[in-house]
């Protein structure tokens, strides 16, 4: 564990709390992509299969994994049931098969071992890299977003961004490299570039999140 990974994980936790806070206080999931949230459930379920295979990394690791699975399922429940009337499926129209199918094929090609758990792990890494697309698509279509929704997306971007110095640190301190995670992580962080540009130049200056026409 190093400071970059710890703060990355904390940013990931923060993103979930920000999202829950937005939904609970506004009693609305307007502007939130159910599809992105469903993809995160798929990501956590396929990546954390090792939970059920008795592989033990640490208490921290297991606790976080259980939290990510539990909270992502709870968010789906909130959108689907508790606040379903505030969810607009007509805005959330990104085709998830364009993300699922290529991620699965990449998982079959690039993995550390051709076993169920390793292929699923690779699949989850590739899927996570692109899972934000339906959410960014809503942003693109509406052209604007509530500040709190943008804080949520920013926290997610910071989480993946911080994993990059973590990998550099681990390369020098442990000599370990995880090429699949590194390549997917760099792509994932890159996808936030446009978003971050608007976020830093507008939202953090107190202006509304509005995409240039």
């Amino acid at each position: 564990m190093n400071i970059f990974r710890l703060f990355g994980d904390l940013a990931h936790l923060a993103s979930i709390f920000i999202l829950l806070h937005k939904v609970q206080t506004s009693r609305s999931c307007r502007g939130i992509s159910f599809k992105t949230q469903a993809l995160y459930v798929a990501v956590f379920m396929t990546r954390y299969l090792d939970l059920f295979l008795g592989t033990w990394v640490s208490f921290y690791n297991t606790l976080m994994k259980l939290f990510f699975i539990g909270s992502s399922c709870y968010i789906l429940y909130l959108i689907r049931f508790q606040f379903r009337t505030t969810y607009d499926p007509n805005l959330d129209t990104f085709r998830v098969e364009y993300l699922l199918v290529p991620s699965f094929i990449l998982g079959l090609i690039f993995n550390y071992e051709f076993t169920l758990t390793e292929v699923m792990w690779s699949f989850s890494i590739f899927l996570e890299a692109v899972a934000i697309f339906p959410q960014l698509f809503i942003l693109q279509r509406t052209g604007e977003a509530e500040a709190i929704t943008t804080h949520y997306i920013a926290a997610l971007g910071i989480y993946r961004g911080l994993y990059i110095p973590n990998w550099i640190y681990r390369y020098y301190s442990e000599g370990s490299v995880d090429p699949i995670a590194v390549v997917a992580g760099i792509v994932q962080t890159g996808l936030y570039a446009d978003f971050f540009y608007v976020y830093f130049t507008k939202v953090l200056q107190g202006q509304r999140f509005e995409l240039p026409a």
Partner: peptide
């Protein structure tokens, strides 16, 4: 060398 297995990152 084979990368980290078990995967210790989240």
């Amino acid at each position: 060398e084979k990368p980290v297995t078990p995967h210790d990152e989240l």
